[in-house]
Write a protein that binds this DNA or RNA. Sequence first.
RNA 1: GUGGGAGUAGCUCAGUUGGUGGAGCGCCGGGUUGUGGCCCCGGCGGUCGCGGGUUCAAGUCCCGUCUCCCACCCCA
Length: 410
Amino acid sequence: MEYKAVRGVEDLIPPESLKFEKVVSTFKEVVERGGFKEVILPIFEEARLFTRSVGEATDIVQKEMYVFEDRGGRVIALRPEGTASAVRAYVERGVYAREPFTKWFYVGPMFRFERPQAGRKRQFFQAGAEVFGLSSPGIDAEVIKLAQDVLRRLKVEATLEVNSIGCKECRPEYRKALLVYLEKKLELLCKDCKERFSRNPLRVLDCKVEGCREVVKGAPKITDYLCRECREHYEKLKEYLKLLKVEFKENPLLVRGLDYYTKTVFEFKSDKLGAQSTVLAGGRYDYLVEELGGPKTPALGFAMGIDRVMLLVEEEREEREGVFVITRGEEAYRKGMEVVNLLREKGLKSEIDHRQGSFKAQMKAADRLLYRFALIIGEEELQNGFFSLKELSTGKQEKIESLKELLARL
RNA sequence: GUGGGAGUAGCUCAGUUGGUGGAGCGCCGGGUUGUGGCCCCGGCGGUCGCGGGUUCAAGUCCCGUCUCCCACCCCA
């Protein structure tokens, strides 16, 4: 094969593409019901936008971004996630000045230069939702509930974990306490965690290595260090989740990989996906709008991994629909094309077999393409001025005298 | 970036100690000269991932490389 899709990217052809559409449309329906409106955001941005928002020290920025210089000398990055662009647009367009609060959603490809694996591609798709201008834990609960609704409607089973990772006030306190604890156990940690100890100690908490997990068991918990405001926010959130009948598990070890999160973080995981088990995740990011040049604005959001969700969605069998026109001879073919055209104008799905093969071949196509009806126009029909309409599922065939009758019959 | 497994027809996969590449499904056609699904028959379809090496001879052995899968890592 001379030409191949590049490593880590893949084509979606039917029926996979139909599944994609199903996931996206379900997501849209659910969030639109919650008052969210769609934004179409650029696929590339200045690289420094992501460095600033996602975090200088994160792996995404350090080694996974597609960065290049464009012909004008700008340093560009293919977006590795959606929130940064949404916030940038929110600030740049002055949306905060026109609306009391803002609910946006987006769908599209993201890019990360990672080692490909099932559920982890270099081009992958996310559907995300963001809320700006609301600080109440009630909206946190509502957003989590919407996320759960999306997964439920797609019949994707996933467990929800929530945590609070505090704010500028309390997280440094916790960090300090954690460092003090970890320093004593440094020798017991794995190589990566020794590294994390100095760079990003919170990430030691979700290390998978047995020895580290042992150490972590005795570590101080962030929830014990939350300031009054964060603690109340977290307590209220849990109350509201119960009110909305959302089942969740508290996980004090849940920390996210992006620097901008504050207070609420959450994650929906599936146990059917192997290592890449997170299907949807998000949290609050109350400082990001300000950091990107906007006014102080509380915000939160989540992103769903469409590719991962697709691995868990069952294929829907298609319903038989529409009319497949079968003809013999030039005159019938012309008549057939007119009929197809008419049916489409009337809003019906219809095709004609342009191959002009045997009736058997054409009938077979009507069946394989899952048409509900085959409309036959042959010599006999032409001569006596009628159509034969066969319903594929029952095999019953009837005479149709006119186009009017045909339309009435369908 | 690290470690392991795998690449043979459109798909799923057989292929013996190296000796002229197969099956099932799918596709096209025929059995039924105007009718799909089930059955029977036939046909199309392969640079054996790519490149190099060993050999009289390589799908098979060796080296390199690319891609996919699994795990680490990371994350949605």
